[in-house]
Every structure is written in structure tokens, then in C-alpha cells.
Design a protein around this nucleic acid. Sequence first.
DNA 1: GGTTCGAATTGAGCCACGTCAATGAAACTT
DNA 2: AAGTTTCATTGACGTGGCTCAATTCGAACC
Lengths: 249, 249
Amino acid sequence: MSANPEKDNRMSESTKTTQKPRHHRCDTCDVRHKAMCAAVDYEHTDQLQAIVSHRDYAPGQVIFEEGDPADYVFNVSNGEVRLYKLLPDGRRQVTGFLTSGDFLGLVTDSSYAYGAEAIGQVELCCMQLGNLERLLSDIPPVRERLLDMSRDELAAAQEQMLLLGRKTAREKIFSFLLNRHNHLNRTDGDASVDLPMSRTDIADYLGLTIETVSRTFTALRDEGLIELPNPHHVIFPDMDAVRDAAEAA
Amino acid sequence: MSANPEKDNRMSESTKTTQKPRHHRCDTCDVRHKAMCAAVDYEHTDQLQAIVSHRDYAPGQVIFEEGDPADYVFNVSNGEVRLYKLLPDGRRQVTGFLTSGDFLGLVTDSSYAYGAEAIGQVELCCMQLGNLERLLSDIPPVRERLLDMSRDELAAAQEQMLLLGRKTAREKIFSFLLNRHNHLNRTDGDASVDLPMSRTDIADYLGLTIETVSRTFTALRDEGLIELPNPHHVIFPDMDAVRDAAEAA
DNA sequence: GGTTCGAATTGAGCCACGTCAATGAAACTT
DNA sequence: AAGTTTCATTGACGTGGCTCAATTCGAACC
């Protein structure tokens, strides 16, 4: 079992609502096509613009905690966010990592169903829950879009259950690396993956301890399957070999 | 790691589409208030009725497999269904159990994202995917309802990730029993739980082996926390004691 | 250039749970 | 009612990953 306070990473409540309202324009937003907002047509862009604002978060800063009253929902415009659930004794399960375009703010009984923290510097686009609901009734395609997005999220969640319940440490690491490679690889030929999160985050995401994560990375390095120029960057010298090894076990 | 062919449980492909088209009426359907259909108003009930049909499934029968082309979506009208994902070597993760009112047929790229099998005798209400989509555009509240339902499902999935990644065998069993008790307890004072599924299903749902599930049940029985008149029925002699023990670890 | 401090790595030992194997208890067949 | 099959339980033993405890590495400081 792992506990992981990450004490100092967690900013005080007072800094939590730190807000530097910049002027962002929805019509030139570069993550719009990936986000929920893609379903807002040209005519309604003004309405969208009117209800969104921006917030910046420092590394480690809490965005919201599980159970907080959910007044706002968010879109990630920049940076990486971790979602997590805690047990009373501090054990943590990271349920997902979000990047630009992802929707944030799952709600049950008008409170957040999980906690969310900035991993590095993060920029969020946010709107009040009430405004989202108004948007949903005014512009039907937005609800369709949101349904599609949560359909994908649900499929990813099931895949993660398979990983957590039935895969070995080695398989978990392989799946994690290959998933990241598939989902966020910008340039096509790039056989490398960035890992902005800490070993603790990875461990809590895969249901392992930091020691096991570290040892597994080292083992893969020693086998020549990956290179580790630094703990936050993985290079695949031979992508096919990795895929073979991943399937073998 | 557990493999579990459940060979003979699996009916042949030919029996798979076994269909005994009965006459069911949406306007008197007794699971309607729990299902997606609750969002279809009185005026549209005929339209709903026109596109649904019923199917019966025998215990162990495959409803669909992961990757099958998804032509139909379903509502469970009766019985219990297991959802699962498989690894190439046969290891299985049960991702959920469904009962009456639950929606079935998560789709990605127009194929099913998981497999589904009847646990006992099962009755499903089904409609073609295209008809569902037409329903969604014709009756906006249905999409809203579906979004709400998948919101809840997603929250449950995250809870399950916490269980799989961070809880001990004992805690997993406690959570499983208490969840069942909370979610499907008909009569209010009833301190018991039915477990229609096999030990293998439970093990694959909790990321354990059948032996560990069995041993944990026995341990709880020996401690006087539960009674086991038979493997498919659990009685809690002292509900509060169970809740305390569950929190203690 | 040395100090500090957090994160990552490495080592040694252990234990919760898995594996393998036997037994028990129902339900089904004939 | 004896044989067969399936599922659950129980026992003996092994091990993958956890725990506890050092190092090591780097970045940010004077």
C-alpha cells in the first residue's frame, strides 16, 4: 500500500483560487477542435466567449478536491492535470491524466467525484456549472459532443480496470508507455514519450509502488528496450521490439 | 493471473440470436423509470414502442463479444449481466454487473468496447443503434438522460479503479458486499445480499483469484461478520459491525 | 564549490496473495 | 443410486511486488 502526502506540492487554500484573468479568444483558441467547444458553432461563439474565463495553476496546486461543491467545470487549455481518489488512510489512486482539450469536472450530487491537481504549470478554461447547463440546452450538439467524450472516457476507464486488475507490473508499464505514445505523440516518427508526472504519480496510476516502477524502468533500460536520458523522458530505440515485448508479457 | 474459459457456459453462435419476440408494452414496462426510456415522454411512447424488441438469454449465454460490430443497444429488463474484457492469454477482468434498468452497449468505432454475457436467465430490451440515434435527435431529454447515466457509470468506474489499484483482498470483498447492499436492496430492513454470479466472476471483478475470494468469505464467516447459508447468499447479522470492519481495513 | 532538499534508484528481506493440488458438496444424467 | 460434472472450499507452498532502509542524482541555493 502506498501513502503519498506530497505535502508541499499542495498549495494553501488561499492560493487555490488564484486567478489571472487574461483575454483569451474562443474563436482563435488552439485547443477548441479537441475540446467540448468544438460543438459550438460560429453563431454561438459569442455566447461561449461570454461565460468562460481563464485560470493559471502552479505545479502541484490543487484545482479541486473530491467532494468539493462543484460550481465550475473546466477545459484544460495547457499543461497536464492528475485526477485521483483517496482512501481515508491516504492511499491514493490516480484515475487519469488530462492534457489540453480534455474536459474536467465530473459531478455527482453536485460535488466533484474526484480530486484534481496541476502537475506542471497548468492553464484552464472554466465556466460555471449553471452556464454549462444553459449551453447544453441552447446548443444541442454540445450535449452530443459531451456524451461522445464521456463514452470514450468510459472505454478508457474499462481498459484501465483491465490493467489494474489483471496485468503484471511489467505489462502495466508497457501499456502506460504505449498508451502515452499513441495518444499524445505530436510528430509522427517520434519514438519517444514525455512523462511530466513523478514516479509517485505513475505508481499511483498503475496500482504499484514507486520502487516497483523504478525497478521496472531500470530493467527495461538494461534490456535495451528503452532509453532513459532523464526520469521524465523515455526513448524507444526499436518500437517494434517494444510492441513485441509488450505482447509477450 | 486467472484464466477462465467457462467453456460450456458459452453457447454456440447459432443460439446467440435466439429470439422469442413477445409482446411487451413500453407504457406498462416496470423498469422504465430506471432506464434510459424514462426520458421518453407520453407523446413519444409509440415511437419508442415501434423500435424496441425483446430477447431472452440462457444462463452463460454470450450477448456480444468485445469488438463485435455494434448494431444493437440494450436495456436490461430482467436478470443479471456481466461485462468483461479479456487479455490475449485469457485473463479476464469483469468490468461490471448490470441489472434491470441498466443500459448496455457502449460503443467505440462502432464496435462494442467489452463483452457481455448473461449470468442467470436474462431478458433484454433491444433496439438498433440507428434507431437509438434517431431517438436521440428526436427527443432531446433522452440524450440528457443518457449523459447523466454515463456520468454515474464513470464515477462508479473510478471507484472501481481505486478498489483495484489500492485496496486489500479483504477491503475489496467488503466494498463489493456493501456496494451490492446499498445499490440493490429492495426491502429496506433486509441485511442480506444476493450474489447470482460465480466465485470466478467475483474474483475477476475484484482482481483476485477464486481461492482468495473463497478464503476471505470463510474468514469473515469465522469472525461472525457474515453468514453464508449458501455460496450465493450473504447475511449480515450486525450491519454496523460490518461497516466498522470495512472502514478499519 | 559546497550544502541542502526532494526525487529517483538500488538493495535486502518479507508477506499477501497467487499457484497447484486435493477434497467436498450440489446438481444433472442415465 | 451410482457416475459425471461443475463449483466452492481448503491446504501446502511459492513468488511478485511491497516494506524498510540506504544511497545516488540533480537542481537550486548560498
